[in-house]
Design a binder for these strands. Structure first.
Length: 267
DNA sequence: GACCCGATTGTCT
DNA sequence: GACAATCGGGTCA
């Protein structure tokens, strides 16, 4: 059975054990994050924004680096077919700048059927298959061929459903229970946890009924954001070193910590 | 049509 | 830290 079929099934049914989460858009990022939320709070400042509001198309109309930073602290919401809502606070992103960026799929202005959504209007999802078995999820930004990769989330709601989706979709058989921090700490992990697949490619985050962004109630202060080299692009020459990955310092939900980059911002 | 590679992950040593 | 899994997309002949 293919991963896609499993995802389709996930869209139709919810775990009978998942009773912890109730539909309440105001809970996201407000309640202390599981076990570790109190650590995180020192890196955030209160925002006056309406945290329950869906982010509209105007939010996405900014350059990739700016959008990658702005996405930190926002809440990604995925509504499954049965109405279950899965929620996660974005804690790690990567910016891909477009034709001049040697690490981007749009390098050199390449436009193919696969990466067409990178060239579509800001806020369009670019979802692609990697290594034949995983998906990665990007949001197009201002600038042709520019986008932001979502790398990690702090899970806020629907954790048991996420756990079930991860258990079902990852390769091999069930061997052990996944810890909370293993649910969304990687670009393909978060796609599994939120049942995001290729069918989400080219969808509009500002309009779609099954996936959208909401204002986080807490946004990271500038000094709490680490800028580090991107992951897994070793062949991209000088572009591999550019600090285009952004994450919330001290967040236990980040996929890869860069201690050198963190020392740089302390200096 | 053939071949190579990958914005990853999980397991094993 | 090493390595396998797995297949679509890109490139080239």
């Amino acid at each position: 059975m293919g991963q896609k079929k499993k995802l389709a099934e996930a869209d139709q049914q919810q775990s009978p054990t998942d009773t912890a989460w109730m539909p309440s858009s105001k809970k996201s990022c407000l309640r202390p994050s599981l076990a570790l939320g109190s650590q995180r709070s020192i890196y955030f400042s209160q925002s006056p924004k309406d945290h329950s509001a869906r982010l509209g198309s105007e939010f996405f109309g900014q350059p990739a680096v700016s959008l990658a930073r702005a996405l930190l602290g926002q809440v990604l919401v995925r509504r499954l077919g049965d109405g279950t809502e899965l929620r996660g606070c974005i804690v790690e992103t990567e910016a891909y700048l477009g034709p001049e960026d040697e690490a981007a799929h749009s390098r050199g202005g390449r436009q193919t059927p696969r990466n067409r959504s990178m060239f579509m209007k800001p806020g369009t999802l670019y979802v692609y298959l990697i290594y034949g078995m995983y998906f990665c999820m990007n949001v197009s930004s201002q600038g042709d061929g520019a986008c932001v990769l979502l790398r990690a989330l702090e899970p806020l709601g629907g954790l048991e459903t996420m756990r079930q989706l991860r258990r079902t979709l990852r390769k091999g058989t069930i061997s052990r229970a996944l810890k909370d921090r293993e649910l969304c700490s990687g670009p393909s992990k978060l796609c599994q946890a939120l049942a995001i697949d290729k069918s989400f490619d080219q969808r509009d985050l500002a309009q779609d009924e099954a996936v959208w962004l909401e204002h986080g109630s807490l946004e990271p202060s500038a000094s709490a954001v680490v800028a580090a080299a991107r992951i897994g692009i070793g062949r991209a020459g000088e572009w591999a070193q550019k600090p285009l990955r952004f994450y919330i310092r001290g967040s236990p939900w980040v996929s890869v910590v860069d201690k050198v980059a963190e020392q740089d911002i302390q200096a």
